[in-house]
Nucleic acid binder design. Structure first.
Lengths: 333, 333
DNA sequence: CTGTTAGCGCCTTCAA
DNA sequence: TTGAAGGCGCTAACAG
């Protein structure tokens, strides 16, 4: 029995190569002040022992972990999944690791996770943080470097956001162009920043069209919120529904289909986000395509800039794109 | 200007409380051998300075990071997302963090990521690893502690897997019971372990039913694979299709609908996984519900056991459940 | 019960 | 160009 041989440390390599620790360190890090022959000898020794510098030890001395944290409200939401994916892939390309933290829509968790994860990483990206603005304002400085996704302009943190207001506005105009004059907005998480942006978009649309009516019905953010809203939708008398997101739209669509109500003949429905499944419902969903994975990518770029002491764009907006599919049509006479 | 005050370290707390570093360390870690009064004084000082032990430094000295890595083949796949979610939430409850690594279905990346992430964490969970068995066998010992999801029994790592074979078998029996005798299996990633399990299930079904025919058509794992398979499906003459997963089924369903072919009247389709959207297609998809998030949870439990030097179950299987919805019916005469 | 003394594994001045 | 020495911030013997 040779026993379980422990992983090789820098000392082992130094010994095998017959040099000092410092030389090994320098060689491993490609420091040009090392004699090429010596460096080669060191690298060979390292290879032979399968040596790689312990990342934790490096992190301690260098003060950086090559890792960033992403705090998201709900790992179950397709949009957040897409953001995470874009972010993760972009960060990986730059040699960074990603620590995820799912706050499960819990405000206290969100606050706590941001702080905890920040300490073991080089920066944190807050995705659609649910906490109120004053809390966020107080938290951001303690988290620096930090990037925020989907909130308004912030002091002390670059923001990358989708323009929810503009997108909703396009959706509304599409419906108006089709001839609808009585819409119903199914409101989702009122804590989300996009809620505010949407309210404003609605107000502006109302101001622009004298004969337009837009009712609002509080709903939620998932399938079930959509199915649960069916009664309210039918009672409202609206000819078209603006769902908070595609999930809600799908839930509603499914419930209406079950009840024998035909979409879009009897009622038009639009979703929001354009999750991958929106194209596969019957009828396929008219929606606004939020470039979620690109949002994640941009957020990483902002973080990357911060990490390199560069000046990132303080506030950038990505425009969702109107996708007209089969769930909208002119109202029936 | 007081300047940017650096984060408080253990020394600052020691100074403020008028004790030694060790006492602060002990107090902070709830070591009972500290005089209660002193401990209180230390905690107060820590609180005043907003002190929390640097996790990186602790990791170095303690030899553990309170973090585990999860390597998955594709962050875009709903099933992996669900596994990740279950795992992440379970780990969080036990005070662990999760580092994610998306190999983007790249074999070399998968191998590399496993090693890299392992070094900055206390263990790694390999989710549906794509690498061949001999490579996996060679890799596992270098990764210990390690847990594997969705592969066959392994030496040196507990495995948590869904019983794909049994589930496919149920799907087939359902179709046979409906009267189908000519099925078509749309094969997905042949590198996935579940592919093998499914082949076996098909073989057994064939052995049990003399008059049954099951053709196989290579496809892929996403929507597009489903739409692309439409021609082949139609040409096959089969009356029912076993899609590799719900995504493929949805792609196919959508394409057939576009072509005016009615499901399930003219053709039955079954999916696999029961992703959240499977219930919202038209018709809703008959499928096998793989308890993905529970798979993640179980994987965490196995890892947790390993981390505590306990003996985890070496191989456990979760049974998907047959979900009969509207996409299957008897074949038309 | 508390303080002093070594490290954890590595990088980086500082001399030589 | 290389080696020796001193930390990074914390925990854990080991004495007192």
């Amino acid at each position: 029995m040779t026993g379980a041989s422990k992983r090789a440390g820098i000392t082992d390599v130094a010994k095998l190569a017959g040099v000092s620790l410092s030389t090994v360190s320098r060689a491993m890090n490609g420091n040009p002040t090392v004699d090429p022959a010596l460096a080669a000898r060191v690298l060979a020794a390292a290879q032979e022992l399968g040596y790689t510098a312990n990342p934790v030890a490096r992190s301690l001395v260098l003060g950086r972990t090559q890792t960033v944290a992403v705090v998201i409200p709900d790992l179950e939401n397709p949009t957040f999944q897409a953001i995470l994916r874009g972010l993760s892939r972009a960060a990986t390309l730059d040699g960074y690791h990603v620590l995820i933290a799912d706050s499960v829509e819990d405000l206290a968790e969100e606050r706590a996770l941001a702080g905890t994860t920040r300490r073991r990483t080089d920066g944190v990206i807050l995705c659609s943080p649910r906490m109120p603005q004053d809390e966020l304002t107080a938290l951001l400085p303690t988290l620096s470097p930090v990037v925020v996704i989907n909130r308004g302009v912030q002091d002390g943190a670059p923001v990358v956001a989708a323009d929810y207001g503009a997108a909703l506005r396009e959706l509304i105009e599409h419906l108006v162009a089709e001839g609808h004059r009585h819409l119903l907005y199914l409101a989702g998480s009122t804590r989300s920043a996009s809620h505010v942006a949407r309210q404003e978009a609605i107000a502006r649309a109302l101001a622009d069209h004298d004969d337009l009516v837009i009712d609002e019905l509080p709903a939620g953010v998932g399938f079930d919120s959509g199915t649960a809203a069916a009664d309210g939708v039918l009672d409202s008398g609206a000819t078209a529904v603006l769902a908070f997101n595609d999930l809600v739209a799908m839930g509603l669509l499914s419930e209406l289909t079950t009840r024998g109500i035909r979409v879009p003949e009897q009622l038009s429905i639009v979703g929001f986000d354009d999750i991958p499944f929106a194209a596969y419902t019957s009828p396929p969903l008219t929606t606004a395509a939020v470039p979620a994975s690109e949002l994640g990518e941009r957020a990483w770029q902002a973080m990357q800039a911060l990490l390199q002491d560069e000046e990132p764009t303080p506030f950038q907006t990505l425009s969702p794109q109107l996708i007209v599919r089969g769930s909208t049509a002119p109202p029936h006479a």
